[in-house]
Each structure stands twice: as structure tokens, then as C-alpha cells.
Computed example of a mutant assay.
Amino acid sequence: MRRVGNSVIAAVTATALCAGAWLLHSGAETHPPPQPSAAQAHSGGRDSGTDGGTAIRSAPAMPPSPPVRIRIPSLRVDAPLTGLSLTPAGGLTVPPADRKNLAGWYEAGTTPGERGTAIVAGHVDNAEGPAVFYGLGALRKHGTVEVDRRDGTVAVFTVDAVEVYDARRFPDDKVYGAASRPELRVITCGGTYSEATGYQGNVVVFAHLTGSR
């Protein structure tokens, strides 16, 4: 498949993930998903490879290979991945909402583990309850994200930051921009919630490759 730059992705990428169907139907009977604290935000430059002045080693880039599964051990996430394409508006299509333990990756872009920025997105909830990335806002710096790849290898990423953005001020370049090392973004809904429009923002995990097996 011909690869295209992530710069073609618009900020509408994750809005389709954010209906908040579960909260809409259950209201006060439910609790909103966790949101990252300011302590989990970037403390250095995005490509600095450091966190608070401490060097974080990057692993060599891996050859391209489509991902088939994502695991986040601290959140007990273990989910298959499906390919996502672009909508006419420039946002990503989203995984089927009725499959709550399914995430997606932008298959026209970078594969997780190769040099560049790979994009994974998933629902925070559906009408039945929490979905695959419901707990994403609770992920902390230095946490681990593992991606199984079709060639039998596993790309191991270390979390550099977890941030939440208002959808109206979503930083496209920061999230989707090119990277000189293998990086990963994991995106779901977050921020405040409105019954009229759903979630008002997005939680984004920034991570870079630190190992493989």
C-alpha cells in the first residue's frame, strides 16, 4: 500500500469516536472516564527524547509490518486492530461502535515500529458501557504499550506523555506530525462531556519505540 503523510489527517479525526453513548443513556448512574493530570503532560520538547532531563533511550526502527493487536498492560487493554482510512472530511474512519474491544490504526500511514508517527484510535465507550480505551486517560508516563505485528514481531513503546485537548484547539501538527524516530499516538475521546454533543475533546498518548521482540 502506498504510504501518505499524516499531515493529511484533519482534527476531525476522533470526533466520530466521541458520541458518549453510554453516558448519554445512563447519565448520573455512570462515571466519566479518567482524564490525564497536568503531571502527565510533556515536560520537554516533543522530539527531545527526554523527560524532565532524564534520557529515554530509543530503539532502532523496525521494518514496516501491519499491526494486528495492541496491549497496554497497566490498563488491561488487549485488543485486535483493524485498518482505518480517511473520510471525505479528512478524518479517520472509526472501528465499529458495537465492537467495544476493537481499536484501529491508520493503515495508509506509518506502521507501529517503523520510523515516523503511527496512529491508533479507539472508542472510549459505546451504548453498552466502557470500550477499549475507556481508561486511556489513566495511563502514566513511562508506561508500556505493546503492538503485535503481522510479521510476528512485537513493537514495545514507552509513554512520554498523556494529554487532553479541547476538540476546537486540537494540535494537529503536534499529534500527527512527522517524527525522526519511531513514535506512536493512541487517541480516544476525553475532556468535558455534553449530552448535546458528547465528549468535547480527545485524550492523546505520546509514546516512542524503546524495544522489540
Rank of each mutant, 00 (worst) to 15 (best):
Y193V: 10
A179Y: 03
H25K: 01
T210P: 02
H42M: 05
F133D: 03
Y165Q: 09
G113S: 15
V164R: 10
V132A: 05
A41R: 14
G198R: 06
A179N: 05
S26F: 06
R2I: 10
G53D: 07
H42G: 03
Y134A: 14
D148E: 15
C18V: 08
V156G: 01
P36Q: 10
N202F: 01
A178M: 05
R2D: 06
R150E: 11
S74A: 15
G143I: 14
G90H: 08
P64V: 13
E146L: 12
P73S: 10
G116S: 13
P34V: 03
R140D: 14
T15W: 10
P63A: 15
N126M: 06
R57P: 14
G191N: 04
A61F: 04
R71L: 08
P112K: 10
I119A: 05
R181I: 09
F157P: 10
A178G: 08
L81T: 02
A79N: 01
S48R: 12
K141S: 07
T15E: 11
R169N: 13
P64S: 13
D125A: 10
V203C: 02
R213Y: 06
R181V: 13
N6Y: 00
V154K: 13
P60V: 06
G44I: 03
D166H: 14
D166L: 07
R57C: 14
A21G: 06
A108E: 14
G211W: 01
G52S: 14
G109Q: 06
E195Q: 07
L24T: 09
A108Q: 14
T82D: 00
A89E: 15
A167L: 03
G20A: 10
R71Q: 14
A196G: 00
L24W: 04
L92W: 10
I56N: 14
G152R: 10
G135P: 05
I56T: 13
L209W: 01
